[in-house]
Simulated assay, not measured.
Amino acid sequence: MARKRDTSGKSETGSKREASGKREMTGKQAAAEQAGFDRRWHLAETPAEVDMTELEFAVMRTFESFGRWQSECLAGCIDFAASGPENALLHVIRMNDRPKSVKELARLMNRDDIPNIQYSLRKLIAAGLVERSGTARTGVSYSVTPLGHEVTETFAEIRRALLIAAIESVPGFADRLADATRTLNLLTGIYEEVSRVAATHRRPRDGWAT
């Protein structure tokens, strides 16, 4: 027999979760609500969900700011329009000054969009920043050119003068960075695992199975 969808707008489980969330609301969240500042929405009904969505929004905003910073810093090194991910790819290719394959670049950056990486590589090669070596039989790898080396060195100098100086001016920020790195690495693993679970147990979109 087919299972019927709940058309009331909220499931029994969802109602219980919301009620539990209200009971478990932290003092900080309660104070925010009393001030007319409600962080709850459809992805954030319980305190745990509120905290997680706040973190996710912070990560998204940080990612966008990080991309803008990378683009602006690179623009100070060379007249070349590159996105944040393309700039990051250039530095990962330069990292440890050794050639890397597309597969290794994807692994280091936790990416699986190989066609996009290949497009970015062609763009960096056309700009004279990266060169390709090897063959399909022996293995293709990528490394920075002398120009790429010069540009990444200049980038590091600007980064040191602006970004690192700003970070070092905040007392205790180095310890907070270490904690943030551990937290983000842990979250990366959690997201990877739940992504696999979601992909494994995905249901048809055209209704409940009988």
Rank of each mutant, 00 (worst) to 15 (best):
Val92Cys: 11
Leu90Pro: 03
Glu104Asn: 00
Ser101Asn: 07
Met95Phe: 15
Glu104Ala: 04
Ile167Ser: 03
Glu150Ile: 03
Ser120Ala: 14
Val144Leu: 07
Arg202Ser: 08
Ser195Arg: 12
Ala127Pro: 03
Ser120Thr: 12
Asn87Asp: 05
Ile167Asp: 05
Ala161Asn: 13
Gly128Trp: 11
Asn110Asp: 05
Arg176Gly: 08
Pro146Gly: 03
His149Asp: 11
Gly128Lys: 09
Arg111His: 12
Arg176Asp: 14
Ser169Cys: 04
Pro171Tyr: 06
Ile93Arg: 10
Leu186Ile: 07
Gly148Ser: 09
Tyr191Gln: 02
Pro99Met: 05
Ile164Ser: 01
Arg122Tyr: 10
Asn110Ser: 12
Thr138His: 12
Leu187Glu: 07
Ala198Ser: 04
Glu86Leu: 12
Ala165Arg: 04
Arg202Ala: 08
Glu153Ser: 09
Thr188Asn: 04
Val130Asp: 00
Gly139Cys: 06
Arg132Asp: 00
Leu163Asn: 04
Arg94Gly: 02
Val170Glu: 05
Ile114Gly: 01
His149Pro: 06
Ile93Asn: 02
Ala161Cys: 08
Ile164Leu: 14
Glu192Gly: 03
Asn110Gln: 10
Arg107Asp: 14
Leu184Asn: 05
Lys123Val: 15
Gly189Gln: 07
Thr200Lys: 13
Thr145Ile: 11
Asp179Thr: 13
Glu153Gly: 04
Gly134Phe: 13
Leu187Asn: 01
Ala161Leu: 09
Leu163Gln: 04
Pro171Arg: 00
Arg111Ile: 10
Arg132Phe: 02
Thr183Asn: 06
Glu86Lys: 13
Val197His: 08
Val170Ala: 02
Arg176Trp: 13
Leu147Gln: 10
Ser133Leu: 08
Gly172Met: 12
Asn87Gly: 13
Gly139Met: 00
Ala126Val: 11
Leu129Glu: 01
Ala174Phe: 13
Leu89Asn: 05
Ala198Val: 06
Val151Gly: 00
Asn116Cys: 10
Ser169Val: 03
Thr154Asp: 06
Thr152Lys: 14
Val170Tyr: 06
Leu162Gln: 10
Ser195Leu: 07
Val194Ile: 10
His201Val: 09
Ile117Glu: 01
Tyr119Asn: 01
Thr152Tyr: 01
Ile117Gln: 00
Asn96Lys: 14
Arg132His: 01
Ala198Leu: 08
Ala126Leu: 10
Leu147Arg: 13
Leu89Pro: 00
Pro171Phe: 05
Asn185Ser: 09
Arg182Asp: 13
Val130Glu: 02
Asn96Arg: 10
Ala88Met: 14
Gly128Tyr: 14
Val170Pro: 02
Gly148Tyr: 03
Leu121Ser: 02
Phe173Glu: 10
Ala166Ser: 11
Thr152Gly: 09
Asn110Cys: 03
Phe173Val: 04
Asp112Pro: 07
Pro146Asn: 05
Val92Glu: 03
Arg98Gln: 15
Pro115Cys: 08
Asp179Cys: 12
Arg196Lys: 14
Pro115Lys: 12
Val102Ala: 10
Thr145Glu: 04
Val92Ser: 07
Ala156Glu: 00
Ala156Val: 02
